[in-house]
Amino acid sequence: MNEPLATLTVRLPLTSAGRRLDQVLAELFPDYSRSRLTSWIKSGDALLDGAVVLPRHLVRGDETVTLTVRMVQEVELAPEPIDLDIRFEDKDVIVINKPVGLVVHPGAGNSAGTLQNALLHHDPKLVEVPRAGIVHRLDKDTSGLMVVARSLRAHTSLVDQLQTRSMHRQYEAVVNGSLIAGGTVDAPISRHPHDRLKQSVQEGGREAVTHYRVRERFRGHSLLQLNLETGRTHQIRVHMQHIRHALVGDSLYSGGLKLPRGASPELIEILRGFKRQALHAERLEFLHPKSGKLVSVEAARPPDMERLIAALRADTQGADPRWRDSE
């Protein structure tokens, strides 16, 4: 089957000038493989300012790409009996609470043990839906809620809600530094110019907006609530680094361990042992693809983040109360 599912439109960032179209699209649409995007360019399903061009065409930046997403099974995956923490399920959608360490999409050297494998075991009919129904993703070491489409109609609806920003995604994170107040980070994001594993704030990148507020303030750290307007790769991690409050445990963006002055041995042990970004997708809201009613699902933070926050709270409560004035 090769049915059209959705039409996505994006304006190319100015930083893409002089690069091949297939390379640029691989960065802008990371949920689709390079080979799949190349085939769509060749077939005319990826148009540049309304015209068919070759994959090697050099873009000038600021053009509009119109991508017609078609139903394809990109990788032959075997169903696997992997436990799923299902928080909501009906004939149209499934909401999963993804654990830390579970990879969402298969990749090079990683064709087994993924959320896609688990979903195909849970519902074999998901083979008929792109990416087994996955319409958005979380990093391997980020925990929390994801919605999965069980039909083409549901997939189209959820993709549209993501594109129009009507899907509400709320996160909780522990960051370095004791923040006084919340705010908004409105800073465009693009692939890091020197490190291909990273993203970074760059002029001419894709629009990215993150709202944050302080839930609790500790000595040297803060517990934040974050709400996304956009959904760029690594968006929260990049934006928090950009304002110099990187996530605890984020080896890619934090720049190392940060310890409060005079931290107890217990807190030091917990901070040193926290080996993943302290980020959890705690709440998800969307309009049901069939009924149109609001679906709202919440998931409590996982035990490792609970222990981390408890240790930071205990350290703060046991400190000299003048610490707030000394920072």
Rank of each mutant, 00 (worst) to 15 (best):
P130D: 11
A132L: 02
A132V: 04
A132T: 09
I134L: 11
I134K: 09
V135N: 09
V135K: 02
H136A: 08
H136S: 09
H136W: 03
R137F: 05
R137S: 01
R137K: 08
L138Y: 06
L138M: 02
D139Q: 03
K140R: 12
K140I: 01
D141K: 04
T142G: 11
T142H: 12
S143A: 00
L145E: 04
M146E: 14
V147A: 14
V148R: 15
A149W: 12
A149V: 11
A149G: 15
R150G: 15
R150V: 13
R150F: 11
R150Y: 13
R150C: 14
L152R: 15
L152G: 06
L152F: 09
L152H: 14
R153C: 12
H155Q: 15
H155T: 10
H155E: 13
H155S: 14
H155P: 10
S157N: 13
S157W: 00
L158A: 06
V159M: 09
D160Q: 15
D160I: 13
D160W: 12
Q161Y: 00
Q161K: 05
L162R: 02
L162H: 02
L162W: 00
Q163K: 02
T164R: 15
T164Q: 12
R165V: 03
R165E: 06
S166E: 04
S166L: 01
H168T: 13
R169L: 00
R169P: 02
Q170K: 14
Q170W: 10
Q170M: 12
Q170N: 01
Y171Q: 10
Y171T: 04
E172W: 03
A173R: 05
V174K: 09
N176A: 14
N176V: 15
G177N: 01
S178I: 01
S178H: 11
A181S: 03
G182K: 05
G182W: 07
G182M: 08
G183K: 03
G183R: 04
T184G: 06
D186W: 01
A187H: 07
A187F: 07
P188Y: 08
R191H: 07
H192P: 05
H192S: 06
H192V: 12
H192E: 07
H192K: 05
P193V: 01
P193Q: 00
H194N: 09
H194T: 11
D195W: 06
D195P: 10
R196T: 08
K198H: 08
Q199G: 09
Q199M: 05
S200P: 02
V201F: 06
V201E: 04
V201M: 05
V201L: 02
Q202N: 06
Q202M: 11
Q202S: 12
Q202R: 03
Q202Y: 09
E203R: 03
G204K: 03
G204D: 02
G205Q: 11
R206W: 10
R206T: 07
E207H: 08
E207M: 07
A208M: 04
A208F: 03
T210P: 03
T210H: 08
H211I: 05
Y212T: 01
Y212V: 02
R213P: 03
V214W: 04
V214T: 09
V214L: 07
R215C: 14
F218M: 12
F218P: 13
G220T: 06
G220Y: 09
